[in-house]
Amino acid sequence: MPHKIKADKVSLQFQNKQVLTNISFELEGEKIYGLLGRNGAGKTSLLSVLAAFVKPTSGSIAVDGEHVFENANVMEQIVFIRDVKMDDENGKAKKYMKDLSIFRPNFDMDYAERLIQRFKLPTDTEVSKLSRGMQSALHAIIGLASRCPITIFDEAYLGMDAPAREIFYEEVLNDFMEHPRTIILSTHLISEMESMFEEVLIIDQGQMIMHEDAETLRDSGVSVTGAVEQVDLFVNGKHILKEQVLGGTKLAMIYGQLSEQEIEEAKALKLTLGPITLQELFIHLTKEDKQ
């Protein structure tokens, strides 16, 4: 079941506020995708369109050529997990999951029970009375055990503490290997999750500014360290993301790969080259004062 998700010029307006502008992308194959964006960049809105929670003002999102909005076949295959409060849900966790498993043809109750044990989710407490972290865990369990061909976690980890997040990451990867599917993880905390992504999409101010293979993206920036004058000489004319001077040493981050010749040149100037992290790249790509 290869699922191809195609967004075609998706725009979204809420009460005259432009939330998404002309977003197009294609996600092909069973991969783990990272959707990165700052708070308010439009991550949740974009995912809401994908999950048919909202109809785009213009443009469309289709899965294998079928429009998502109000399409029973497609909607059944998408689970959209958000870290929302469940204060109006009574009933205990297992009952709650059993009820909604009716709607998910692939729901694996055994797996859900194993996850309940791993997350130490109390099964004798009403869902609405669970702590924030436990509600987050419950959301995560539902998202994983539903085994939907398109599984979306929208900052689903927010309420979890570090050990719970660790379990969550591990389970996402394990279950992805056992049951390959399209998994989309949105986050603004990148360093913790970046190694999980195969492809990365970056959204900023309602626009898609980057869609790239994660390894390629990590490779698309270079940090240059050395004496101030030498660094200045080397980075002149290049796309500089960040510069920092400490005494006589300068660190510059540049966007774009270096040619063999440039690497030799850097060596001659006695500069140290290194990669830059996805986190750094993200911060600089989504800076407010960028051109």
């Binding site: 991969k31 783990i32 660790e166 990451y169 591990e170 990867l173 394990n174 992805f176 290997m177 190694s195 999980m196 992504f197 195969e198 994660a214 390894e215």
Partner: peptide, 18 residues
């Protein structure tokens, strides 16, 4: 195995395969 490395380092399976 890929699975061991993926689980241990929390990295994408495709990366390990690469």
């Amino acid at each position: 195995s890929t699975n061991q490395l993926v689980a241990y380092y929390k990295i994408n399976p495709a990366t390990v395969l690469k």
